[in-house]
Amino acid sequence: MSIKQTRLAGVAIFAGFVTCLAPPPHAAEITPPATIYAHVCGYCHGTNVGPIILGKHIAVDVIKLYVRKGPNAMPAFRPTEITDAELDALAQWISVSQPSPTEHGQ
């Protein structure tokens, strides 16, 4: 049985209760970068905790390295939290982003 089929079986068992299944780490469906940014990165970056990263044109590879390594005070994010495919899209999205007027700090 494939992983995807296994997950669907899980849904069936808990039908009526489960609404919040996350895809397995290698699923084709990925969480959009804007959602990941809002639910993870944006709690620190742009709130006067971590440095502002939107609109700074940071290189994609640098972003990916930081996310996986977690330099200094930054947490490291594992592939179970942000998949490789999600990270590719997220790093690209951040790299070409415009500054956000709602963010503040350094």
């Binding site: 899980g10 808990f14 209760f17 489960v18 397995p24 594992r78 179970t80």
Partner: peptide, 24 residues
């Protein structure tokens, strides 16, 4: 200790993808 094991060489069992909200 973050996600790292107490001592070198242990295998990590990462359950982050076991993330069903079974019932509220």
């Amino acid at each position: 200790g973050s996600a790292a094991p107490a001592s070198r060489g242990q295998v990590i069992l990462d359950l982050h993808r076991m993330n069903r909200i079974i019932n509220v």
